[in-house]
Amino acid sequence: MFWKTQIPVFIVFVVGMLTLLQWFIPHYPLNQIQVHMTQWFDIIAVFAIVLGGLNLLKLQFAKITARQKDWQYALVTIVSFFVMLVFGFTRMGLSPDDGVRLGSHLQQEGSNFHWMFFNVFTPLSSTMFALLAFFVASASYRAFRIRNAEATLLLVAGIILMLGRVPIGHLLTAWAPSYLQLPAIQEWIYSVPNLAGARAIMIGIGLGMVATSLRFILGIEKSFLGGDE
């Protein structure tokens, strides 16, 4: 209990308070906290990413051994994982005498990692996000069918904002006085009512973050320990 629960809560308290104190006492040694501890944060985050990779492999191997539905595709994930990993940690594709350091090879044209990034990773990631355009279109159609004042306001604001930022929006209302043209209307929507709503959301998020951070630092919130605590 002491090692598994109280020590983590104590670590959160000490690290949280030290980090907070450095904002109010910005002198040595406290001012070093932000410099070094944020680096520590990034380093530990890399181990968390590695943990994610290992967990992915564990799940995929389990899928294959249990012969679950579509287990063959788990092979694709495993093979592609190792192929990209090998390319990430070797200089494959580059000649030995070109003087490119291991690590810099990631961005070096001609390396296998670079090739995989441009011909496999980029097409896949950008197409995956581009695919969402179709789902957003279907979501807006469903929002249109709700037909209440709030949904209509959301869609009208969105459509004016989109049209006002492309040439066709300007062309559609070129005949109107300048303050009634779509680019001017979208600019007004963006900088007045949108600003008011967005600002209220930001203040709300800020209040929520401050309260939650305090709850963590003071040990009231312990959800990071897992569901059984």
């Binding site: 990413i49 994930t77 990209m84 940690f89």
Partner: peptide, 15 residues
């Protein structure tokens, strides 16, 4: 599935 495998290793190597 290829995307999942490649992107996991991509981020591991990059970081």
């Amino acid at each position: 599935h290829l995307f999942v495998g490649v992107s996991a290793s991509y981020w591991i190597a990059t970081y």
